[in-house]
Simulated assay, not measured.
Amino acid sequence: MTDYAARRTMMVDTQVRPSDVTKFNIIDAMLTVRREVFTPDDKREIAYVSENVPLGAGRVMLEPRTLAKILDALDIQPEEMVLDLGCGLGYSTALIARLAEAVVAVEEDEDLARDAEALLSSENVDNAALITAPLAEGAPKHGPYDVITLQGAVEEVPEAILAQLKEGGRIAAVFMEGGLGVCRLGYKIDGDVSWRFEFNASAPVLNGFERATAFVL
Rank of each mutant, 00 (worst) to 15 (best):
N124T: 07
P204S: 11
H142V: 00
A47H: 10
E79W: 04
A139Q: 01
D3S: 10
A129G: 03
G208E: 03
P144F: 09
P134F: 04
A139P: 00
F209G: 06
I96M: 14
I46T: 14
F38I: 09
I70C: 04
A29G: 07
A57K: 15
L119F: 13
A100F: 00
A133H: 11
V174G: 12
S92V: 01
A102R: 15
S121A: 14
V147D: 08
L74I: 08
S194A: 08
G178R: 08
L31R: 15
Q151D: 15
D115T: 15
V33S: 13
I27P: 07
A201M: 08
L180N: 13
A214N: 01
A97W: 02
E177M: 06
M30A: 09
D109Y: 04
A5R: 15
K188A: 03
K188R: 15
C87T: 14
G191W: 04
M1E: 07
R59M: 08
E80I: 09
A68Q: 11
R211C: 01
A113D: 02
D84E: 04
G88P: 01
L150S: 13
D192C: 00
I96W: 10
L31M: 14
Q15D: 05
A102H: 12
H142I: 00
L206F: 03
A29E: 11
R170D: 03
I27K: 12
A160I: 02
L71H: 03
A129S: 14
R211Y: 00
G88R: 05
V157T: 12
L217V: 04
P134Y: 03
Y91W: 08
E51G: 09
M176D: 06
A163F: 00
T213N: 02
D20M: 13
L180P: 00
D3Q: 10
F209V: 06
A173C: 15
A100V: 06
D28A: 15
V60Y: 13
N127C: 12
Y48G: 13
R114N: 07
